[in-house]
């Protein structure tokens, strides 16, 4: 699998994503500079975390209007898998590839900690290596991760099975107490309708190395490797 990692000015998890991709796929990831419009052929596009353009407007709003994003939208529409992590998720909602928006955390503070999330489906290219209903431990690190959409959209997401992950307890129970940022219906990650795009606030690339205290992020990348090539 050949993965490309997009680098915006202000991206700061681009290297972390590339390190994990290389560890899992065995191939170096291609770093894609934001100013370029032509993109190398990739089997997976990763939009990494960080503070693109400083996020001085709404998080992800500036990046969504950059030249590279037009190419990402085009490729996504042609079915190239896209994984947006943290700021990447914010950017994907700003481009309209995923519905809703990520608002300021309910606490109004930045939160960096491990949380538990539950894969809602395991029949996708991103989650096939996870066990259905079993919570995984993945860190979050954001100030704007509070997912919001109107009721109609939320019902549609639920009805169509487009919620990828929900914040939950260690035992897999979805509850208010397990919701770190106030997200509607504990939504931590979303799929596009064709299941080829995943946006998520937690950072699977950060816990994919036992030395760093956990490997629950690794199956996400393994799933992609297994299903793509």
């Amino acid at each position: 699998m050949k993965a490309g990692v997009v680098v915006f000015p202000g991206s700061n998890c681009d290297r972390d994503a590339a390190v994990t991709l290389q560890a899992v796929t065995g191939h170096p990831a291609e770093m894609i500079w934001h100013g370029d419009t032509d993109m190398p052929d990739c089997d997976l596009i990763v939009v990494p975390g960080g503070f693109s353009y400083g996020d001085y407007l709404r998080s992800g709003a500036m990046a969504a209007h950059s030249p590279i994003c037009r190419t990402i939208v085009e490729k996504a529409k042609r079915g190239v898998p896209v994984l947006g992590i943290c700021n990447g998720f914010q950017i994907l909602t700003e481009t309209g590839l995923l519905p809703g928006i990520l608002m300021r955390n309910a606490s109004l503070r930045f939160i960096c900690k491990d949380v538990y999330i539950r894969p809602e489906r395991t029949d996708t290219i991103f989650a096939a290596a996870y066990e259905a209903g079993k919570a995984i431990r993945i860190p979050i690190a954001h100030k704007d991760g509070n997912y919001f959409a109107d009721r109609e959209t939320l019902d549609r997401l639920d009805g169509d099975g487009l919620v990828a992950f929900r914040y939950c307890t260690e035992q897999g129970e979805v509850s208010d107490a397990a919701n770190p940022n106030g997200s509607q219906r504990n939504i931590a990650g979303l799929y596009s309708e064709n299941g080829r795009i995943l946006g998520m606030m937690p950072h699977p690339e950060r816990l994919a190395d036992a030395m760093l205290g956990g490997v629950d992020g690794r199956p996400l990348f393994q799933s992609l490797v297994n299903s793509i090539h």
Partner: peptide
């Protein structure tokens, strides 16, 4: 305090 700091970015934090 320290949960308001990203203490894991760069992927090398062995002891938090």
């Amino acid at each position: 305090i320290w949960e308001q700091y990203d203490h894991m970015v760069m992927g090398d934090t062995v002891q938090r």
